[in-house]
Design a protein around this nucleic acid. Structure first.
Length: 196
DNA sequence: GAGAAGATCTCCT
DNA sequence: GGAGATCTTCTCA
């Protein structure tokens, strides 16, 4: 696992829609003292700024969404519905709000650790949803603002398999505004996608 | 300071 | 398929 390097800042410093699509198939690495969990990103959604009424950044800068306006390549974690955390990655250049919501992942290594964090009936059920994957990977508010270009306890790396992913593009899920924008991307035929 | 809404999940019917 | 859980954040007075 030592050969795995985080994606550079330049990867995130692009249009949010491009970053979102290219994150598919990449590996999310979560390190613990006992070992690490490696999970493939299979489903994401893009959120932008002024042109996106579903985005937290739509109404302008607030203490909560400050990270979306800052440098790309940082974790933006927020609490929702009184129960769940959602993991986002900030994107686009500084002062241009943008973030990619990671909706579901496929745990490839370290499933024992993931099951310890989250009791689930199957591997699919372990991480096929925004709230589920943050539970399985033990991601919470403490990771808000974490630099994902540093090789720390949480970062994203390129896939070692270099497999080609077939991307499906659909409308986003679970939102009321901006539903017409086709900014949800997932890997075709993946059983780990929250909704086909 | 109060009220309302929310990028979800699980349980129950 | 529907509703409850539960709490942070924002808006408005």
């Amino acid at each position: 696992m030592d050969v795995v390097k985080p994606l550079p800042r330049s990867f995130y410093n692009r249009d949010t829609l491009v970053v979102a699509q290219e994150l598919l198939g990449k590996l999310l690495i979560r390190r613990f003292s006992e070992g690490c969990i490696v999970a493939k990103i299979v489903e994401v959604e893009a959120y932008r700024g002024r042109d996106d009424p579903a985005s937290h950044a739509y109404r302008g800068e607030t203490p909560r969404n400050l990270l979306m306006f800052g440098k790309p390549g940082f974790a933006y974690v927020y609490f929702i519905y009184g129960n769940h955390y959602c993991l986002n990655v900030t994107s686009d250049q500084e002062q241009v709000p943008g973030a990619v919501l990671i909706r579901s992942v496929e745990v490839i290594e370290g499933s024992k650790l993931a099951y310890r964090n989250r009791k689930a009936k199957s591997l699919v059920n372990l991480s096929n949803g925004p709230g589920k994957l943050t539970q399985a990977l033990d991601i919470s508010k403490t990771h808000n603002g974490l630099d994902l270009t540093k090789s720390g306890e949480l970062f994203i790396s390129t896939s070692r398999t270099c497999e080609k992913v077939e991307t499906m593009i659909t409308k986003r899920i679970g939102i009321r505004a901006g539903i017409e924008k086709p900014w949800r991307f997932y890997i075709r035929n993946s059983a780990f996608v929250s909704r086909q």
